[in-house]
Design a protein around this nucleic acid. Structure first.
Length: 115
DNA sequence: CCCTTGACTATCT
DNA sequence: GAGATAGCCAAGG
């Protein structure tokens, strides 16, 4: 692979590896922070090429849902990993306290307004 | 070289 | 708020 590609991959791995436990980032965010705006779709590919384990489960869609098909094997696996880290879901969406663009504590303290 | 795919997003109905 | 639409970019047929 070219040096350019290697640089991209390693930047991605770096950013993903820096995500704090219990927090998540969107593909677009990871790409942007890594210095490659508009490469959201490439983030997944880069993670797949990682030579060592990465907290890939902390990377989700910009709408805070898991990127796999709901109910699929990979989906359930990722959901479980996140739940193990204290991330909470409501109707398949991650509660915005576990994110950086999240709102405030009200939802967490007062409880999710399900209905 | 053209066309399709996809662990994506932002925007409009 | 769900569904459609249009950008996006690299990989593979």
């Amino acid at each position: 692979m070219s040096d350019q590609e290697k640089s991209f991959d390693e930047s991605i791995w770096q950013v993903v590896g820096d995500i704090v436990v219990g927090r998540v980032m969107s593909y677009g965010d990871v790409a942007r922070v890594a210095g490659f705006p508009r490469r959201a779709r490439m983030v997944a590919r880069a993670m797949g090429r990682s030579p060592e384990p990465l907290p890939w489960h902390r990377v989700v869609r910009s709408d805070l849902t898991i990127a796999f098909e709901a109910g699929s094997e990979p989906y359930l696996k990722q959901e479980k990993l996140l739940l193990n880290e204290g991330v909470k879901f409501v109707k398949g969406k991650i509660i915005p306290i576990a994110t950086d663009k999240g709102r405030e504590l009200d939802e967490v303290l007062w409880g999710p307004e399900d209905s």
